[in-house]
Design a protein around this nucleic acid. Sequence first.
DNA 1: TTTAAATGTATATAATTTTTTCAAATACTA
DNA 2: TAGTATTTGAAAAAATTATATACATTTAAA
Lengths: 215, 215
Amino acid sequence: MDKENRVSITVIRRLPKYYRYLGELLKKGINRISSQELSKMTGFTASQIRQDLNNFGGFGQQGYGYNVEELHHQLGKILGLDKTYNTVIVGAGNLGQAVANYKGFEDAGFKILSLFDKNPKLIGLKIRDIEIRDVDELEEFIKENDVEIGIITTPKENAQDIADIYVRSGIKGIWNFAPADLKVDDDIIIENVHLNESLFTLSYFLNNKSDYVRN
Amino acid sequence: MDKENRVSITVIRRLPKYYRYLGELLKKGINRISSQELSKMTGFTASQIRQDLNNFGGFGQQGYGYNVEELHHQLGKILGLDKTYNTVIVGAGNLGQAVANYKGFEDAGFKILSLFDKNPKLIGLKIRDIEIRDVDELEEFIKENDVEIGIITTPKENAQDIADIYVRSGIKGIWNFAPADLKVDDDIIIENVHLNESLFTLSYFLNNKSDYVRN
DNA sequence: TTTAAATGTATATAATTTTTTCAAATACTA
DNA sequence: TAGTATTTGAAAAAATTATATACATTTAAA
């Protein structure tokens, strides 16, 4: 797939939401859904939903709609959720522990093999049977355990150093919670969770509410 | 400001990043910056940066560029960071504690007055001098303490109930970490941090790397 | 004093994203 | 079974967003 045909990032970012709603429908035992109903649920327009899905194939049927289980399954495959990933977390503070404790990630195939920290008080402790190791052992651990995804929950001062170790160790993707833009090789995928930026955006809209509500 | 003149959301979401980089420059003691240099730092084009800033006024000077301190200050004002906000967190698990422990939010003017939970084992404990209270006291606490922002770090099953309490109590904005889309009145600002969606997006790009790298 | 650098602003162009439209297929009802 | 309503997929149109260009004006620096 060349640049012309690749699916735009805005579309990709909507897929997890579709996936989530379809999962909820599945749980409720609903096995058929139309783009119009999905529109009501998700807030996206029906035509946008149809177009988004058609980037990956025709999963629906005219006059019928979509089979919930099938579409959920296909979206899971598209998002790569049919595989499992070995991950590690560097930064075993509250945020690292919060991520480690969230069982939802493991259910989706993201296995957290270990936490790492440089604080001696934390090293050796366990979070849900996941051991906290010395960050000095990070590189070796990654290489020996086929770790694909590295999670960064350190203060921003250490984030780039950890990213460097990740890249050196052969990690393929970084999930970064530190408020910094990491510099890495082009072929490393970075996904940022910038809590600061999210909170500041909320603050902006609070102060400019009238411009955006009901317009 | 009507719909025609309001600033687009894509612009708004870039402001916190400008603000962050300017803060870093300020710390380094750099007091002058050009759009071209900002472009190199942020990855946005110089003309886009100039256009973004000009949505709010002409903060620069021909032949000179921008005064770092002044621009940082102005962006802070635009983002509403020149005020302080009273906030509360419902959900005192790891994630709630992580947010409560992050001093950066307080430095930016977001004061966390209290955490709330329904788990008796947590109620009464303190995180950095912030008390964990029974969620039954939430509504009264909000009304008595002029709380403007409500943070939700509960499991998704409870998120909507908490949102309802928030709205009923007069909260103006919700920062939601639960993987759910909350239904609230139109004039309530919601900012979501959907970690699941972020991780799944990372997963997608890992599996379709070749389409997006160097194209 | 002259030259280089830089913004602000308008305009043009390109790229991207969303909406509209409608033929074709299916489901449903009488 | 026939007729009607529903629904997708796909193409085209429209709208939005991003980028580039141009240049008068201002400042800095040589």
